[in-house]
């Protein structure tokens, strides 16, 4: 009996040790995730709780037939994610290439340029709202002195400039992630590959195209995929910097579902938007993994 019990305990050990993690994930991730689907089928507005009840797919019907903000938000999400990922990847890769060279003071430079990685979305929003401010902002002052503008621009209140202003702020915070991961991979490239390239008379740009990029391919695919999902899900910065405005110019789908729930207290409708976001993320992840042939070479 005692031996049996001990054998059982030994077999159960991994599952026992996974229990705390499982409890956390079940309670605070799986449960809320599934209840979003239930909420999306309800009329549930905190301002009109007496009308609360099951309404089937009515929220979805309204979203797809009678909601201009939704369709606009899809476009803004698309522009937001693509610009963020492309610019961050390009600049992050460039920075990684620069930091891969040896020069004096590299350690200090690295500490500084990687620092925004540790900054929160709220702090980033604070910093850039000071810079972009129409009346006291330093950007207008700089641009006036350089002769780029003659009249002050309200970067965050102007419908034409607001999205690119927000993208710039998020790029500032996002470059280090790519630079850090790509630099780590660059430093794993065996040096004899470079030597072979040099013997064949390869130029620096050929080194990048024929050695570095192919070697980094998997890292680039994985980081880009993760980053795209994170940027799609990003709310901290936009919520603090513009709250989706002016006139919904920075209202991404994730921002729309957040403000519907948080600011307008319309839980049912917000949940329906969340369900749509969930399926977009799911499809995006599947398509991307397939396109990138990820894992086939392993």
């Amino acid at each position: 009996m005692n031996v049996k019990r001990r054998r059982f305990l030994r077999a159960a050990m991994p599952y026992l040790m996974l229990t705390p993690a499982a409890l956390f994930l079940l309670l605070f991730l799986a449960y809320p995730l599934f209840s979003v689907f239930g909420l999306s089928l309800q009329n549930y507005n905190v301002a009109r709780l007496n009308q609360r009840g099951f309404i089937g797919l009515e929220n979805f019907a309204k979203i797809f037939t009678d909601d201009n903000v939704f369709f606009k938000s899809l476009g803004i999400s698309f522009r937001w994610v693509v610009s963020e990922v492309v610019i961050q990847l390009f600049l992050g890769f460039w920075l990684a290439l620069l930091l891969d060279k040896t020069f004096r003071g590299r350690g200090v430079v690295r500490s500084l340029v990687f620092l925004p990685w540790a900054m929160s979305g709220v702090v980033t929003a604070m910093i850039w709202s000071l810079i972009f401010n129409q009346n006291i902002g330093v950007l207008n002052d700089l641009f006036r002195k350089l002769g780029i503008i003659t009249k002050d621009v309200a970067w965050l209140a102007n419908a034409k400039t607001v999205l690119w202003s927000c993208i710039t702020a998020e790029v500032w915070r996002g470059i280090p992630f790519f630079a850090i991961t790509l630099l780590a991979s660059l430093q794993n490239i065996p040096t004899d590959l470079y030597e072979a390239c040099r013997v064949d008379g390869g130029r620096p740009w050929q080194e990048i195209v024929y050695i570095k990029l192919p070697f980094l391919k998997n890292t680039i695919i994985l980081t880009t995929l993760l980053r795209a999902v994170w940027e799609f899900n990003n709310v901290d910065l936009l919520f603090t910097l513009t709250n989706g405005g002016p006139s919904n110019r920075t209202m991404t789908l994730t921002m729309y579902m957040t403000t519907t729930s948080v600011n307008n207290n319309n839980y049912g409708y917000g949940a329906a938007l969340a369900v749509i976001a969930f399926f977009i993320l799911l499809m995006f992840a599947l398509v991307y993994l397939k396109l990138s042939n990820f894992g086939k070479e392993d």
């Binding site: 994930l25 605070f28 991730l29 449960y31 809320p32 995730l33 209840s35 979003v36 909420l39 993760l226 999902v229 799609f232 899900n233 709310v235 994730t254 579902m257 957040t258 729930s261 948080v262 839980y267 917000g270 949940a271 969340a274 976001a277 969930f278 993320l281 799911l282 992840a285």
Partner: peptide, 15 residues
Amino acid sequence: TQFIPGAMLLTPMFI
């Protein structure tokens, strides 16, 4: 879990 947006869980968690 890396793919799930926190904003999506906000309302049910709040309730």
